[in-house]
Structures are given as C-alpha cells and as structure tokens.
Nucleic acid binder design. Structure first.
Lengths: 158, 158
DNA sequence: CTTGAAAAATGGAGGGT
DNA sequence: ACCCTCCATTTTTCAAG
C-alpha cells in the first residue's frame, strides 16, 4: 500500500500539495487540468494524501485585523524550574488561553515562544497580567511586538 | 450594504468563521445544521464573508514533518542600517526565499523575525550562510530552534 | 429566510494501457 | 499499478417569493 511508511510521493502528488497549500477551494477538475490528468485519479490521490496525513486538514484563513485582532505579539517565556512536571503544567495551562495561537518549546535563553493575538494594548496587558500572571509555572516573560507582517504563506513551500 | 466599512458581524457570522477556521471542508448543509439555518442563507453569508475579506482564502494544512521539513527555526535579524530603502530591500530579498514562511517587522533588539522551515541542520546551515549570507542589508542574525510544537491553531480563536 | 430547481462536483463501477 | 470514461448520487448555487 502506497504511503504506508516513509514512501516517496511522486511529482504529481507534490504538485497537488503545492496547489492545495495555497488554495484548497479549487475544483478537482481544475486541479486535474493543472497536472494533466482526469478528475478521478486526482480525486483518488487526494483521498490518499488525506488518509496518510500529508494533508492534515482544510481551513479558512481569517483576516485577524478585520476581526479586530490587530495586534500580534511574540511572547518569550522562562519557566521557574526546568523539570518535566512544570513544563507539562505550563503547556496544559497555556493551551487553554484563546489569545495563544501557537506555542513552541525552544532553544536559547527562554523556554517557550508564544504567538499571541490581541485586540489592542489594553487587551494584551490584561492577557499578560491576568492570564499569564496566574500561570504558576512561569518565571519571567519578554514580549516582542509585531509592527508589520511582511510575509505569511501559512505552509511550507514545496 | 452589509460589511461595507467596519460593520459588525452578527453571532451567526462569528459561528461560521469559528467553524471554517478549524475545518473548511465541512459541507454547507452540515454547517447550516450547526447554526440552525437552512443551506441557502448560510451560503449567502459565506459569499459575503469571502467578498468582504473576513475570509482571505481556503488552504490545505500540510504536515511539514511528513514532507521532510522537520526543523522549524525562528531567525532574528538585525539590519546594517535603519533607513527605509535598506528595509524594503531586505523584505524584497527575503520574500523570494522559499524556506521563509513568515516575516515580521518587530520591536526590540532585532528588526525582523523570520519563521523558517528546513529539512535538517545541514539545510539550515546552507540557508544561513548561502541564502541569508548573500542578502546585503543584513547586519547580524540570531537563530532560535524549535524543539517541540505544542500548539498551533493556524487562526485566531474567536 | 424559505422553497425549489438547475448546474456542478463527488465518488464509484468497469474497462483499458 | 495506474489511468480513463461513464453514470448515479449528492451538493452547490442561485432564482423568485
């Protein structure tokens, strides 16, 4: 069975992923035309790419600014201590916070990096003092504010 | 006309955006069932939300690891000088690099923050020395490596 | 918003290279 | 193993009320 372990995708699969990573609303027949196939085999390939996890899901990309989340912040976090229990406590707590859209365990001076969306500075202040402030495992934080988003492809570029 | 300037979305629009931001493959009729409406008005709302830009696009979310881009790096960049021309030169150059999936102009010690995907350390080394290395406007860089992705919602949480 | 109907996409069967 | 054409079913799309 194809794609079972670490099997390679062929050129057409890569083409399909490349297109769908940028626009998934394209009709199967238009996608088929782009890779010079008929809709059926393309349809079968899509189902396989979904079932095998190369495609995780399909989403609508929303305009954060229009939805009044005009402020993006990268928040660096240092834990109080570095044992496993403290770390998983932190992750569990931070997962609940709706302002946090991404959370990474990182190398360097800080332990975690959060990408945070806030309506405005007042909202972010409340987030830091009231929400992060009540997460016990946090030692210190450092915020970096985004002034301008120059590029965001939302996917790896194959 | 609805949504023309800074008009408010109603509760149902927000519900629709919330669902589509997590899964856009849902059929209109299933979406309609979730908000207790028939497919037609939901369809009309979707078209308005798309036309007015609240929904920017629809994409497939790809599995970077499975596609052998197992390494994520946040690369902080300091420019040589801080005039407008140098800044836009940098943005223009960095836009071309396929390893860079996000680029932000930020506050703090560094000028830009890049989110970078690489196959492995060798690939990233090549990226820093050969690709970033040939961008004239760059003064210095500082890389932060992602050890674990704990959360990624791919959208604001309404 | 509802009804209702035309247009289109989905997903399978069966056959060919 | 992969692709094709054909066709039934379902879904999308868009009138008109």
């Amino acid at each position: 069975m194809k794609y079972s372990s670490n099997e390679l995708l062929d050129d057409i699969d890569i083409q399909l992923l490349k297109h769908l990573g940028q626009d998934s609303n394209i009709a199967t027949k238009d996608l088929a035309a782009k890779v010079n196939l008929s809709p059926s085999p393309v349809f079968e390939r899509l189902k396989r790419l979904e079932a095998s996890g190369f495609i995780k899901k399909y989403i609508a990309v929303l305009d954060a600014e229009k939805l009044s989340y005009g402020l993006m912040i990268f928040c660096n976090i240092k834990l109080k201590q570095h044992d496993k229990a403290i770390g998983s406590d932190f992750v569990k707590d931070v997962m609940q916070l709706k302002e946090v859209v991404e959370c990474y365990n990182i190398s360097g001076d800080y332990d975690f990096l959060l990408k945070v969306y806030a309506r405005d500075m007042k909202h972010y202040q409340d987030f830091v003092f009231n929400k992060l402030g009540s997460v016990k495992s946090i030692g210190s934080t450092h915020s970096t504010f985004v002034m301008c988003e120059n590029k965001n492809t939302h996917n790896i570029n194959l």
